[in-house]
Structure formats: C-alpha cells, structure tokens
C-alpha cells in the first residue's frame, strides 16, 4: 500500500513539475528575522566598544587610525549570534538579510565604520570617538558639574586621575601613586 502511494507521488511530481527555487537565477529572500551579516548604522554608532566586549569570537575590533577610530567587523570570524545587536546602547547594529558572503580572499569580507576620534589631550592615547563624548556630556549635563568638566572629559583615565589628584591636593606633584585599573576599551593597531 505504501509502495502504491509512493508510485502515485512520483507520477504526481512528474505532472506538476519541479518545486525547486532556481537560485541564483531567481531571488530567494530569507525570512524577516534572519540573522545575516550585522550592519552598522554610521549615524548612530559611537564606537563605545560594547559590541567588542560582548562578541564571543572577537570578530569585532576597534581600530586606532590616528584622527579616526574605526569599528571593524570581520565576517570570516562572525558566528551571527546577534549579541552585538542586543547590547548596543544606541541600537546601531542590525542583523541584515545578507547571506551570500562567499569570497576568494577571506580578509576582504569586512565592514568598517569610522568616525572622528577623541584623543587624550596630554598623552595622546585614544579614548573613544567624538560622538561618544558628546553623548556622555549630553546625558550628564543635568547634574551639577565642575566648571572644568569639559577638560576632564577629554583626558584618558591615567591623565584624568593625575589631574584630579593635582586639583585635590592643591599642589603639583610629579607622580600620583594610584592603583591603575586596566580598562581595555580599545586596541591599538
């Protein structure tokens, strides 16, 4: 009986024609919630580094390019888990519907978004991007701030600590014995 059903199914397939999607001659779009290549909105991204810290494979890297800071996603290492989408505070990352990423050279499947950088005014180390600084100032400006906050915001943690110690103690000291907590926000390239 099952053999008869199989035979009838075969004849039905012969009559009705194939069921194939003729990709690549026909488009074959994925469903709406498909996790394709993560794309960054350049207007919203602030290079804060949240996606970098949460990426399980470290496919995202923050690059120091002198006057600019870039957020670079290497699709060769990405596992399309969408963690970066979840933790981005500005909702700048969206998983697009792009799935055809095949390539001859694996280093070239990247997406880079760059923006002006904010460097420390004393030692020149990269802190973060200009926009992140603006956003931080925007969020804390309702609090009572000291008048030199704008200067403090443009210093790296070590220099900021030294300046603050100087102001507190009221004298100019060469070294401030401090417990330096390493904050790995960015990677030097």
């Amino acid at each position: 009986m099952t053999k008869l059903k199989a035979v009838l199914e075969g004849f039905r397939a012969l009559i009705k024609g194939p069921f194939t999607v003729r990709y690549p001659f026909e488009p074959s779009p994925p469903p709406e919630t498909f996790r394709g290549a993560p794309k960054r909105d350049i207007e919203k991204c602030t290079a804060c580094g949240a996606c970098y810290q949460n990426c399980p494979t470290k496919a995202i890297s923050i690059l120091d390019l002198g006057k600019e800071v870039a957020v670079d996603v290497w699709y060769g290492k990405c596992i399309f888990c969408a963690r970066c989408t979840e933790v981005c505070p500005e909702e700048a990352v969206k998983m697009s519907l792009t799935y055809d990423l095949s390539t001859y050279n694996k280093e070239e499947v990247r997406e880079s978004v760059s923006m002006p950088a904010q460097r420390c005014q004393i030692c020149g180390k990269l802190i973060t991007s200009d926009r992140q600084v603006d956003k931080v100032i925007d969020r804390v400006k309702i609090l009572p701030l000291p008048l030199n906050y704008h200067m403090m915001v443009s210093l790296c943690p070590e220099c900021k600590r030294k300046q603050q110690a100087t102001l507190l103690l009221g004298l100019r000291v060469e070294r401030v014995p401090a417990i330096t907590i390493p904050v790995a926000v960015s990677e030097k390239k």
């Binding site: 075969g10 004849f11 397939a13 012969l14 009705k16 194939p18 069921f19 194939t20 003729r22």
Partner: peptide, 8 residues
C-alpha cells in the same frame, strides 16, 4: 529520476 523527485 529528478522529475519524479520534484527536482529539475
């Protein structure tokens, strides 16, 4: 065989 299996 392919046509019987709904293929091209």
């Amino acid at each position: 065989g392919a046509r019987m299996q709904w293929r091209i």
